[in-house]
Design a protein around this nucleic acid. Structure first.
Lengths: 124, 124
DNA sequence: AATATTATTGATAATTATTATCAATAAGGA
DNA sequence: TCCTTATTGATAATAATTATCAATAATATT
């Protein structure tokens, strides 16, 4: 037996999947606690790392220091507002061109990641 | 007088500019110390932040926890090898199509950032 | 179903990265 | 040259993440 399916891992993945925001670990931990207060913070860290390795969850990198997480596998761009610090999805940016170049690359590209930074429509 | 040009800031920018790797703060700090051992670590943090605000330096985000920095303003893609953890530039990826979409966006996009992750040619 | 094995957990300590504090220094205008 | 105050270096404080370890529970074996 190599890995085990645990109740905690299920709860963590389900909770993240149902969040449309892109929570930090701490925010995810708070949401998980609402479902099961016994789940520890270290368990959230551990399982999110596992889910990333399994390709079920993606790490989102922004300028604001800490990491955000996303269980949405549909290809999309992230937008980070430097003013209100909101992080959200853009589905109307076409990435087919990039996809094609990735496939023709001499490197083995497992994933790619596109982040826009600027001022969102609400803030300006 | 609002901001001042300091010897330390010059050294930090020059040092980063001449590094073709994309150092972390600590690696940059070590390189800076070789030029002037009196420069403190906090000064490196502070000046890199300033240089980012001024658009002279870019923060590179990878999966490996800490941030890397780049003084190269030429538009390019970063590749992070999940095996050897090297981070390097790709200049042969065409981003014109992204540029175009950025300009037509309803958001004010100040910068965008493209990262590929996978296995580099040396590692496979 | 009962048992044995060991991956995983929760709690907490340790580590690491980054930011804040503050007296001393030095950039640059007067 | 003097004055003002932004910046510095050293260090403390904070925040994010990882390591430790006994207790628990998932699952393979009996």
């Amino acid at each position: 037996m190599n890995t085990r399916n645990t109740r905690q891992k299920d709860i963590i993945y389900q909770t993240l999947s149902e969040m449309d925001s892109h929570p930090t670990i701490l925010e995810l931990y708070e949401a998980v606690k609402d479902r099961d207060a016994s789940v520890g913070q270290a368990t959230v860290y551990r399982n999110v790392s596992k889910l990333i390795e399994e390709g079920m969850v993606f790490k989102i990198l922004t300028s604001d220091g800490c990491c955000h997480y996303d269980a949405n596998s549909r290809q999309h761009v992230h937008f980070f507002c430097n003013h209100c610090h909101r992080l959200f999805d853009l589905y109307d940016i076409d990435l087919k061109f990039l996809d094609k170049q990735v496939k023709n690359s001499k490197y083995e590209v497992d994933s790619f990641y596109v982040l826009f930074e600027g001022i969102c429509d609400k803030c300006r």
